[in-house]
Amino acid sequence: MKKWQNVTIKGTKDGLTLHLNDDCSFEDLKKELDEKLSGTLLTNEDRALIPVKLETGYRYLTVEQQGELRDLVRQKNHLVVEEINSQVITTEEADKQREENGMVTIARIVRSGQVVEVPGNLLLIGDVNPGGTIIAGGNIFVMGALKGIAHAGCDGNDQAVIAASSMKASQLRISDCLNRAPDHTNRDEKHEMECAYIDINRNIVIDRLQGLMHLRPNLTRLEGGR
């Protein structure tokens, strides 16, 4: 029988990663974790806190169980749990992820004073008139003229993009970055479909849509998908 088979400790440049067996009972897991941490602990009082990451596999941990593991690790000098990763999520969490990563399709004209907001990605078939606003937690795609305000990645998603058949927005926002009235050399000239994204300098850049596939290769796949 292998010793410590329920707990594997690996050191990394960022601290410790503990891989926890997801087949044993929770009580057996806690007992072995306590014993193993006690047997390998450094006792130098001047040592800084060591961050610990827990990998729990397919074991679902309640909030109380997570708290027990955090307390157990914290009782050991210089160790503190900074992250708990699990391959299991609740139905509520799955529904929330689906909502945030899904695509909402709306066919309408967003007129002055109107606001359309969705938690995930937005596909608008129609125009956004001056004074109209569209907001999305993910990407925004406008199959029409974007002349009003568009805010993509409103919850802090820097990878979000805005694309429109005619990009003449009065204001573009992605995450916390802002770009007012994008400048075109000839406002009356017909343009091909364009996109806006945050570059490495955290500026909003407007470019041809064809370049987007190189900048955001995972755009055609929902986040967390395969």
Rank of each mutant, 00 (worst) to 15 (best):
A169F: 01
R74A: 11
A164H: 04
K76P: 00
N218W: 06
K10E: 10
R47D: 08
G132P: 01
E194K: 12
N77Y: 04
H151N: 13
L42I: 11
Q114P: 02
I109P: 00
R98I: 10
T220W: 03
R47N: 08
T220K: 11
R98E: 13
A145Y: 02
R74C: 00
V73H: 00
L124M: 04
T220D: 09
N201W: 08
L41F: 04
E92M: 09
G138K: 11
E68N: 09
Y58K: 15
I134S: 01
A107W: 03
M193W: 01
H214P: 00
V161S: 07
D199N: 15
G102L: 04
I174V: 10
Y60H: 14
E93R: 15
K2R: 14
A160V: 11
I50A: 00
L20K: 08
Q97A: 13
K76F: 02
D22Q: 06
R202E: 11
R98K: 15
R59G: 02
M167Q: 07
R108S: 13
T91I: 13
D95M: 14
K31Y: 04
L146Y: 03
A94G: 07
E35G: 06
A145Q: 12
L69H: 02
I135S: 08
R221D: 06
L124Q: 03
L69C: 05
K190D: 11
A181D: 08
Q87S: 14
A94M: 14
